[in-house]
Design a binder for these strands. Structure first.
Lengths: 202, 202
DNA sequence: GAAACTTTTTCCCTATTGGCAACAAATTTG
DNA sequence: CAAATTTGTTGCCAATAGGGAAAAAGTTTC
């Protein structure tokens, strides 16, 4: 029996996927309201004109990147959602799960990766469980390096995390680390069993 | 003895923090080059004018948000770095770790959250380990809901994940799920011990 | 329910964007 | 090394963003 990976998408949601960020205004307004600010206050904080903000919220203008950036700071807007284009196969209203051990395996010389929740292709974070086969740094040809951020949680065993610019970090079950994955990095098991970690990269 | 949470930042990196996105042009140009595209190709792909792109890359214009968004898609630009204001404490070249059980606790009626890697304030993903105290859906006043995406991994115990639009999902140790956290959601332990899960939200 | 005040929207006007096309620079080809 | 082709930059101009101020809409107060 095949495991059901993804269930049907939820029904009739707001469905305001809206063409080309026509929702942007709404989002900004929501964010402002949530912070309990008036147009004037928010505008002043972001150092823009009252009217400008009004027009943006009502989608009467296509704001400059500069303005948006200022607003993001002021309103603590999370960057990503602003860029969600029209129904771009986004994950809105969706869910995908993977049962233990049923992920998509992908093996390298030093790692054995099990990709999780692979049905949801448009997700932004990439979660996977890895078994660290490497036992010595020398097994790595070079640093693993890819623009972005990465979070790692040790599920079992113990290991040493090597990262560029830093001294090696010893980790065991339950420990976690967050780092700029643009820095070179690599793991080596130090327990008798190969260590297993959960990685989420972005 | 206090655990060292964050080590010193790596040395002398590029250090082009640059005031108010004067680097934006450079970043875009880099991204384009990296994809091996000419101005023409990139511009066409993003449906903007050749010249416009040129001017943007040379910082001769303050592009509109709309234009930037199109470029981001075309060039696979990662959102965050564009918004990094001058030295805003971004994570480039940084690392932060938390030992098992040493996270920052934050308790609610139904959960007991332990925030991880809290020294790195500007990170984009939010990782935390939660103990699910709730034993029945009725304990939730309403759906938990926050714009974004969320990944959950069951560390121990078993639970039922309730999500809006879907039928409840039974999960045990090692299972994982990824969902749009804009959908209402909530967990309830079903094992004798309170279930423990790792959440990463964005 | 009118007056006083707050909050938001609408005009108006100048500064600037963004696209087209001509130009310059760089690269390839014969 | 000139011609041909491609890639990047600059003028030009219509379209429009963004700020100030006035008008309108929404609240509160008496």
């Amino acid at each position: 029996m095949e495991p059901v990976q993804t269930e049907e998408t939820g029904p009739a949601r707001d469905a305001r996927d809206a063409p080309d960020g026509q929702v942007l205004g709404q989002m900004i307004r929501d964010a402002r309201k949530e912070k309990g600010l008036t147009l004037e206050e928010a505008a002043k904080a972001a150092a823009i004109g009252r009217s400008t903000l009004s027009k943006i919220e009502n989608n009467l203008t296509k704001p400059s990147f500069d303005i948006i950036r200022r607003l993001m700071q002021t309103l603590d807007l999370k960057t990503p959602q602003l860029f969600v284009q029209s129904g771009d196969g986004d994950i809105s209203g969706r869910r995908d799960y993977t049962l233990a051990g049923r992920g998509e395996h992908q093996e390298t010389a030093t790692y054995d990766h099990e990709l999780l929740c692979t049905e949801l292709t448009s997700k932004r974070m990439l979660p996977y469980i890895s078994t660290i086969k490497a036992r010595d740094v020398s097994e790595f040809e070079s640093w693993v390096r890819h623009r972005g951020e990465e979070f790692m949680f040790v599920i079992s065993g113990s290991l040493t995390l090597y990262t560029e610019h830093y001294r090696p970090l010893e980790m065991t079950e339950g420990d976690s680390v967050y780092y700029d994955s643009g820095m070179g990095h690599g793991c080596v098991s130090t327990s008798t069993e190969d260590a297993r970690v959960l990685w989420v990269s972005l």
